[in-house]
Design a protein around this nucleic acid. Structure first.
Lengths: 213, 213
DNA sequence: CGATAACTTGAGAGGGTTCAACTATCGTGG
DNA sequence: CCACGATAGTTGAACCCTCTCAAGTTATCG
């Protein structure tokens, strides 16, 4: 189904908030994130996108794209032409099924993030997100021992967690001084995964049957 | 595709957190909500379900159901047998498309809720949710003038908004004393919708093309 | 090696939480 | 039909987690 490939530089906008009926992308390489902004500049990051994730489903199915997508690293995407979705469903039901799977999967991630932001303390939230990202990077074979690449700034963490930048920093330092994480030169290392998970009340399970990659 | 109809009483559990591979439901009548609980009892409501919404997609596509569903009012659902989803996609691509649409739509609601909980003040959050529910009830023709049925308790509001019960109450009273809302005997009335929307930085648009109902 | 972005740290303020008690409302059975 | 218990809503007061403001310090990159 691939029509073409496209590349975006780190920090560039993959998809603008307000775009309508754009193309659909599948993320092939790199990290990105989906976010929404309020009129006065407050930003909430909804979830992070790694290879295999889908971009732009909402803007295609629903009327307008409400969320922006920005690249964290250099990114390559596989482009589907706009309006290819319905023909795809008709011609290849199994691919349609996969798209639905990906949508449900992404919803699950947003769900989890909402639980964190709504009901967990700052310490728990940070732990949660770090475990989550670590696990995802690991499952994509990006890990080197128990350390994974980590292209987010503390600003991104703060905006994903619904915390202020300052408090995010303090919380990270606290986790580091507890010996539970290490964060340096763009890499994240989780020392005591079990105690981290206990701290955060983490109950993620591995995902099976992931389609499209 | 309907196999049978089933009924749940108000306050009863439609779907338990932890269920695996349950049936799929479509909500026909009544209100419900999706939630997730932490080990120590903290609860986060992810979104509210009204007629036309889908229940149990995640538990069916993914391995385990992570979110529970509880009825707010008496509820009727249309039951799809477990494992009917893939055959449905194959036999009726257009229904598969609709399922995807519903999933994307629900994700959009969770997205919005996450933005509120993460980045809006308590006053803005409450306003946001009330506008949202009012609009949804209205679009289902449940409105009587500018008032709609409102089966939630303040406890539900608090758990959806990531606020404490007490602060939710104070915030509601504040909105009432500002003359922007009225909440009594199970009905919600929005007085000054425009100013409420301005207060909350609300930018919802009407949804078109909703499938399945 | 200077500039710019990212990260740190201190101090004070405030939005929201918790604890606790009280009031209203609603459903039910005597 | 009223009394009573239970559930939902209301209010006060003290505390504290997190925010904001402000000023560094440390990386990173051309």
């Amino acid at each position: 189904m691939k029509t073409s490939e496209r590349h975006f530089a780190a920090q560039s906008t993959v998809r603008r908030q307000g775009d309508s009926r754009g193309e659909l992308f599948t993320l092939l390489r790199g990290w990105a994130f989906r976010y929404q902004m309020l009129a006065d500049g407050r930003r909430q990051i909804l979830n992070f996108l790694l290879p295999g994730d889908f971009v732009g489903l909402q803007g295609n199915l629903l009327e307008v794209e409400r969320t922006g997508v920005e690249a964290l690293t250099d990114v390559s995407v596989c482009v589907f032409p706009a309006d290819a979705l319905w023909p795809l469903f008709r011609a290849h039901p199994s691919l349609g099924f996969d798209v639905t799977w990906l949508c449900a999967h992404e919803k699950l991630m947003v769900d989890d993030n909402l639980v964190s932001v709504g009901r967990r303390s700052a310490l728990e939230r940070v732990a949660m997100l770090l475990i989550h990202l670590h696990k995802r990077a690991r499952s994509l074979a990006l890990a080197d021992g128990d350390s994974v690449p980590f292209p987010l700034t503390q600003h991104h963490l703060a905006d994903a967690l619904g915390l202020s930048l300052v408090h995010t920093n303090r919380t990270l330092r606290r986790l580091q001084s507890m010996g539970m994480i290490r964060l340096e030169r763009g890499r994240l290392t989780l020392g005591a995964l079990a105690s981290l998970q206990a701290l955060a009340d983490y109950h993620g399970r591995e995902l099976e049957n992931r389609p499209l990659i």
